[in-house]
């Protein structure tokens, strides 16, 4: 079974985010890393291909400046190869444009199953998996906390408001996974060395059969009209516990008349 895993490469989330003053979008300069949320998809893909007794994991990523650092991490985990879409025309792409690019790249790999995260750490639109599925004309199951593949079907436990649903869909399908789905492995030294020579196929927007005005700023059909600081919540009273802080809490709750 061949699996495509969407692997987003993002700025280090530990560094404070910044908006570009001109374009008013997130700055994505410098080195990018594999979005932690996608490590679950990579691990799941590797395990499912393994269980199926054959097949491989292909990564699909859209990133600026031919970035591969994050892809190398996922390749080191065990993915076989990657398709990277990098093109200046993609700057300013919204979720739908990104979905068009990813869907076109996925088609090249002809997978049985596509895995994404439920949402990315830096963009978190959360609508991309459904958009990709619609563009491919495939079924989708979002918010998977458990996946099994058998008899040409994916059987998924889908997180819900009240618990979870047992849902199945025929392959090919797209499934978005939550952090609970598997425990990602750490790349081994051997894996890291091997990753350096694994193929990364870099393509442009035109190679995917998309026109420049379907992506980037022209494709987004939206405009950022204002950016402003939010009103800050102020810190209140701070007490050091000297063995009696619970009394201050009780007092506070009494003042609020909740006890």
């Amino acid at each position: 079974m061949n699996v495509v895993v969407c692997a987003k490469q993002i700025p280090d989330p530990a560094a404070p985010g910044e908006l570009d003053p001109n374009t008013k979008t997130l700055k994505r300069e410098g080195k990018l890393i594999l979005d932690d949320s996608d490590a679950y998809g990579v691990e799941m893909g590797l395990q499912l291909a393994d269980k199926a007794g054959g097949g491989e994991v292909t990564l699909v990523s859209m990133a600026p400046n031919s970035e591969v650092s994050g892809l190398r991490t996922a390749l080191a985990m065990g993915a076989a190869k990657a398709i990277l879409v990098s093109d200046p025309a993609l700057q300013g792409s919204d979720s739908l444009a990104t979905a068009k690019v990813l869907a076109a790249a996925i088609k090249r790999a002809e997978p049985d199953l596509v895995l994404t995260a439920t949402e990315s750490t830096d963009g978190y639109t959360g609508v991309l998996p459904a958009q990709i599925a619609e563009l491919l004309g495939w079924p989708s199951i979002t918010f998977a906390k458990h996946i099994e593949v058998a008899d040409g079907k994916a059987k998924v436990q889908r997180q819900t408001e009240e618990g979870y649903d047992e849902v199945e869909a025929p392959l090919p399908a797209i499934v978005s996974v939550t952090a609970g789905v598997v425990e990602p492995r750490y790349p081994s030294f051997k894996g890291i060395m091997a990753a350096k020579n694994k193929p990364v196929d870099e393509v442009k927007v035109a190679d995917l059969g998309l026109a420049d005005d379907q992506v980037g700023w022209p494709g987004a059909r939206q405009e950022i009209t204002d950016v402003a600081p939010a009103e800050e919540r102020k810190a209140g009273e701070i007490v050091e516990d000297e063995g009696d802080a619970h009394e201050r809490i009780i007092q506070f709750l009494e003042q609020l008349k909740v006890i």
């Binding site: 008013k24 939206q222 950022i224 009209t225 204002d226 950016v227 600081p229």
Partner: peptide, 8 residues
Amino acid sequence: NTLVQTAF
């Protein structure tokens, strides 16, 4: 901490 307004 930052509010962004986007128009269709």
